[in-house]
Structures are given as C-alpha cells and as structure tokens.
C-alpha cells in the first residue's frame, strides 16, 4: 500500500456516502428517470475507453480500442437522450401548466 492508493480509497469512500445521501428522497414517479440518469453518468467509462484506445498499439489492440469507445459512447449518448425523453413527459402542457406543476409538488411532498 502506498499513499497513492490510499488517496483513491478516500475518494471512493467519500463518493459512496455522497451517492447514498444525495438521492435520499425520491418520489416513486422519478425512480425510472433517476435510474436512467445514473445509467448515463457511468458512461464516464468513455474517458477510460479513450485513454485505453489512445495507448493501443497494433491492429488487434486498436480494433478492441475502437470497440470499447463505441460501447462507451453508446452508454453516454443513449443514457442522456433516453433520460431526457422520459423527463420530457413531465413538461407541463401550456393549458394545464399550473395544475401540473402543483400536482408534481404534491406528489413530491407525499413521497418524502
């Protein structure tokens, strides 16, 4: 064990607590969008994919590198676009604008 790994473990532990606390109150109507949104966030693996692909040598490694980048990109763009489409449904219609946002407030309160 060197101090490098300890620093990463510190970040890991703190992030775990933040992840747990930050979504402590979620109304059930938002469970699926939240799942989809966090799904997009782990698309950050694209960063790792870029680093790995960027360090590849030879046709085999580069081919695999391209595949990883494709997979990770799918995760990122698919995740955010699907989440956005789900949340589009929550957008209030012009004629029902006030009703709707009130309704969501009530729901949020009930769930919490």
């Amino acid at each position: 064990m060197n101090s490098g790994i300890l620093q990463f473990i510190t970040v890991f532990v703190l992030a775990a607590f933040v992840g747990y606390e930050v979504i402590s109150k979620v109304p059930s109507i938002l469970h699926t969008p939240l799942m989809s949104g966090t799904n997009a966030v782990h698309g950050i693996i694209l960063l790792g994919a870029i680093l790995i692909c960027g360090a590849s040598h030879g046709p085999l490694q580069i081919t695999l590198g391209i595949i990883v980048v494709i997979l990770a990109t799918l995760n990122v763009v698919g995740g955010f676009v699907v989440t956005d489409r789900m949340l589009e449904m929550f957008k209030a219609k012009p004629n029902a604008k006030n009703d709707k946002s009130d309704a969501q407030d009530v729901q949020a309160k009930e769930a919490s």
Partner: peptide
Amino acid sequence: GFTLHSNVLIVAGTLVGASGMLL
C-alpha cells in the same frame, strides 16, 4: 478508475454504485 488512476472515474462510478443500491 482505480486501475487508470482517475479520480473522476472513481467518483462517478461510485456515485452510481451507491445511489443505485439505494434506488
């Protein structure tokens, strides 16, 4: 993130891991 020494990978991955368990 640990393997590639990347804090942002660790943070994002762990956030999803922990919140996903709770969710």
